[in-house]
Design a protein around this nucleic acid. Structure first.
Lengths: 335, 335
DNA sequence: CTGCTTTAATTAAACGTTTCATTTATAAGG
DNA sequence: CCTTATAAATGAAACGTTTAATTAAAGCAG
């Protein structure tokens, strides 16, 4: 029971320098591969550092350099099946560049979002990847000059990564037209965000052009359909549905089945998002795929570039979507 | 274009002290509500700090105190539907105590897991919430004396939060027996982890006692059934399935349907985990619920307590599970 | 009024880095 | 052999906090 039982304090740079017989400055230069350090000395320091298991104290480094090698990821809701894959890829891409990620889930609350941003800034993150609740530029004055990458929303001052939702909405509508449907309902998700609204409007526009738009309703982002929507879905007024979000689409399928209608024999459905659930349904949900994985990776890359070059001109990346055919589209029933 | 365009550097404690006309020490004491500071002075400092929008630099604080107010969360796979709810609640509970969370997803790779732990430790997190890949005590020597809370796995030295899987496995089996089934198959998930293995063994044991165990196979944690499992499921040898993981259960339902069998009319199924997908299936998957939300919250609480009192005796929390009846259990078909 | 205790405030060291400015040693040039 | 340039290494300051040690002021008993 000696005093230092197993308290083996992590070795500090001073310890390394001491053990290597050089000054702290030299040790630092050697380890960071800067300054002018003799080849032998450098090797020796590295060797000693390795032997002692030296790992720099990142807090100290952060204080000195003003960089934390950490970024923040602000998401509305981790349990929204759209986000885990995004978060996963952000975390991985970040790690490849030796960055760590503070993940924050704001539960769809703008106040929580503000608080989260504040907390992260206070922590001194080098940048933020931010999937905001809405399009409002509320964080602008909070973030100050901090590098921010905004996902899927509009924002006048930050780097943007977006999705070509128009094309997605059109693809879905066209697919249903091509299958022969002429009475098609559109359900859009939350309507207070441009990107979300636009999906369904693009669909609706195509359908209108073919004179095939039966109605256009909207529903909260939820598996549960609001009564009026549920009624419209199952009252026989349509033979197909163009839905702005997979989760709602799955809810629609559920409603249809509960009322004795079959998918896709009686009603065809196309969703949007390609959340993992969709592939697991029976039959699998046909949908518009959003390349979340790539988006996550590119978000990190873009943010890190911005961190490195704060003055570079604003970037705006638009990702293509693709139609994923599974099992929920069929020709309309023959009456 | 003055020099300090909009570079409005964040005010430091020195700035506050200066503006308030006190020493840095006094400002610090006042803000942290310690030491002996006169009531007037304290109020004044607080007022000035608020006016300047002062937020302490956490890196500096961390270096001085050795505490970062950050914890790490190490998960095997965020896209595994079991985890997002857990992560969400960890993040929230942590925020309530002014802690931030580094989230790491190790993609089921032990090397990645080690690397992640190293990185987090280097960052100086105050503790780790760790859902390990397996039961091996591999991180023990890495973590040193760092407070660690282990989720759902066995570990001899750390605080533990576990699930009463035995009771869950039994509940599932008993429910099927009670429904009248006598030819029941058991599918277990990954078998290299005690907690996972035990679920199905408890089920199997009950079934054996009732002479109702048709077979006991296992399958990777995946929606796709391995050929032998798929064959067994659909060859008519059983009227019910007791599955150690919802994801596999959903895969089984899919397989059954593809082969023309109905759930639950022809085959009843009970899963385990209560992942969100299950509720969205049609009919909803009957399953054993694990209180992930509470687990997440309690994980944070337990970890923070351990951080505060490192010498307290080891804690081990076992959470009860509950059976959730949805739509996949029915009496066996009458031949 | 003196000496002692309490309260309020301050000074300065320390945490572990990075990095500027400086010193020392070595080599090159005349 | 002296000067000067270059290379290698070092000393010390700084980053923004906390906190132990110290001082100054005030209150109060005797």
């Amino acid at each position: 029971m000696t005093k230092d039982e197993n308290s083996a304090k992590r070795p500090t740079l001073k310890d390394v320098a001491l053990a290597a017989g050089v000054s702290v400055a030299t040790a630092s230069y050697a380890l960071n591969d800067v300054g002018s350090v003799g080849g032998d000395t450098r090797r020796h320091v590295l060797e000693v550092a390795a032997r002692l298991g030296y790992r720099p104290n990142l807090s100290a480094k952060a204080m000195r350099t003003g960089k934390t090698s950490a970024i923040g990821l602000i998401l509305p809701d981790l349990t929204n099946p759209f986000f885990p894959a995004l978060a996963q890829n952000v975390v991985h891409a970040a790690r490849e560049s030796a960055y760590s990620v503070f993940v924050t889930d704001t539960q769809g609350s703008p106040e929580a979002e503000r608080a989260a941003a504040q907390a992260l800034i206070q922590r001194g993150v080098d940048g933020l990847i931010w999937f905001p609740i809405n399009d409002e530029d509320t964080l602008a004055h909070l973030t100050g000059g901090l590098p921010v990458l905004v996902l899927d929303r509009d924002n006048p001052r930050h780097d943007l990564i977006q999705i070509d939702v128009d094309s997605g909405g059109r693809m879905a509508a066209e697919r249903l037209i091509r299958a022969g449907h002429r009475r098609i309902g559109v359900i859009s998700g939350p309507t207070d965000v441009r990107s979300s609204r636009q999906r369904s409007e693009s669909s609706a526009e195509v359908l209108r052009r073919h004179d095939a738009l039966a109605w256009h309703l909207h529903n909260a982002y939820s598996f549960d359909l609001e009564p009026t929507v549920a009624a419209a879905v199952a009252d026989g007024s349509v033979t197909a549905l163009c839905v702005g979000a997979d989760l709602i689409a799955l809810g629609a399928i559920n409603t249809l089945r509960q009322r004795g209608l079959r998918v896709p024999e009686d009603v065809s459905i196309i969703g949007f998002d390609n959340i993992p659930y969709g592939a697991l349904a029976f039959p699998g949900l046909s949908t518009i795929n959003i390349p979340v994985e790539e988006m996550g990776i590119e978000a990190v890359n873009t943010l890190l570039r911005r961190i490195a070059k704060p003055t570079e001109s604003r970037r705006r990346l638009v990702f293509d979507v693709t139609y994923v055919e599974r099992g929920t589209v069929a020709p309309p029933p023959t009456p």
